[in-house]
Write a protein that binds this DNA or RNA. Sequence first.
RNA 1: GGUCCCGUGGUGUAGCGGCCAAACAUGCGGCCCUGUCAAGGCCGAGAUCGCGGGUUCAAAUCCCGUCGGGACCGCCA
Length: 595
Amino acid sequence: MYKTHTCGELRLTDDGKIVKLAGWVHRRRDHGGVTFIDLRDRFGLVQIVLNPEISPEAHQLAESIRMEWVIQVEGVVRKRPEGAENPNLSTGEIEVEVHKLNVLNPAKIPPFLINKDEEADENTRLKYRYLDLRREKMRNNIELRHRVVKFIRDYLDQRGFLEIETPILFKTTPEGARDYLVPSRVHPGEFYALPQSPQQLKQLLMVAGVERYFQIARCFRDEDQRGDRQPEFTQLDLEMSFVEREDVMNLIEDLFIQLVKEVVPQKRILKIPFPRLKYQEAMDRFGKDNPDLRFGMELVNISDLAQQSGFSVFDQAILNGGSVRGINAKGLGDYTRKQIDELTEFVKQFGAKGLAYIAYTSAGEIRSTFAKFLSPQLQQAIFDRMQAEKGDLLLFVADKVEIVYETLGRLRVFLAEKLNLLDPNVLAFCWVIDFPYVVWNEEEKRWDPSHHLFTSPMPEDIPLLDIDPGKARGQQYDLVLNNYEIGGGSIRIHDRQLQEKVFKLIGLDPDVARERFGHMLEAFEYGTPPHGGIAPGIDRICMILAGEPNIREVIAFPKNQAARDVMADAPSPVEEKQLEELHIRVVYPTDSQKS
RNA sequence: GGUCCCGUGGUGUAGCGGCCAAACAUGCGGCCCUGUCAAGGCCGAGAUCGCGGGUUCAAAUCCCGUCGGGACCGCCA
């Protein structure tokens, strides 16, 4: 054994013990006479002392040692001299007096500092990820992730769930995200696809009678990156038989309440039980189906008031079937014209033509883009409805309702960030339910499933599928946390006729449906229990719990925005021989196709 | 496919037409120092400012292009 103890565990009670320690040189303090080294391993830091009077050899050798060298020491645990304790260190009451020092492996000078939390260039961090992971923040994040997953496994195990692995090499499903394809060597011209999620397989496990299944499942989607999206990511994939919507929601809600209590006790859940918002309510109040409930500034509909104003921008919007809504940016009434212009630019990105406002300055003055249409009565009515006080800034968007939602929903979050209203220690979970079952795809002139095509409609809305599909609601539920959708699920269809009806509704050709999903349809005829499930995203959850701005910070070896692993430099070209075996010929894009 | 932002010693930043062959911190090298813990003191090395082109008497600084990175839109059932 290289070590008898870890660097984090020695205490005053170990005083006098002979120990062996091994780890990395975190810092070295050479006083000419005595030399101190903070020795680090994954479990902590401990100060080791090299005294020439104890061991001249060790002290001599320590001269040459540099940061991040891997060393081993043998020595005696000593209580530190009076006044030399370090209260910032859990091992700060003791130190290890070194009798023997062993260099296990020297280290080059690292490209960034391991012992400081100073930001380093992310590209460099990714290239030397193994060094980045030594740093305290990343070590904590990776450990947090372990705690989260461990908690989930234990929690579900105690409740009768089985963790079952499903294939990584599976079948393409072109209706979702773009698939990652894997060519078959033994079947020329045929391909596996990496799963976008184990959706079909977990449903088939329900047909198989598993009843309670989960998996910490890797999922793959070949779409462009975002801070909260990687080409491969991890879901808690879960499915249960003989359950209704409430059953799944209640289980998951309790799981997260307990998880927070155990893994991040310093964080506070805003509301228990989690608020449940109907989709329409979420849109009306927050403009998004993933609302951040940590702050107010809710949208207010003033279409009826705006109608009387005579302000043509408002009239036009309403005449075209749109609406006029606003938010009260509390305390921004003294914003300058320039600052408001900035907000206007912001909403224009998302399709708004402009931003109307009423600034009620702290001095009590009114400034407004539609001042001359603002009769005292109208102004009062708007102020009443929006609870405006001196010092407030009322911001309005008049447009098609989708654009109003989109722009005000984003503006609301944008302002909250600016105003520092987003407390990272508060966890505002909520459920969003009663989603529309299908949404009209204008481009393709067809109905698209708003969740996925195995989702069951609300039983009472099934007749609507024939007469007015847009009005039907799905048995879908999204779990939302602080402005992120962290999981979506639904009660599934377990009846072949209904499933075929849905395929037809969304314009899936029966032959194509049989080819792609024949195994599902057939399975449904062999005694399928009612079932449903959910798939919370582990990366996003860990990101929020760790207070990180993107999921790369909670993934050991993430890819960059261009979907590249910059450490190993993947993807990479392959040998011609490999391509031959796979019956593949590469056709490179020409310059004109590239641009 | 598109929009925006960034690119200065190893790292993080400053400089944003002449005062800059570039400043500060940290790291790195050397010397001094027996109780420090972000040790300290002294000395030193290290960037032609991502790359290419242009404007100008003069470019790290302005413009165009390009490469790299990031944020976002599209996309993500």
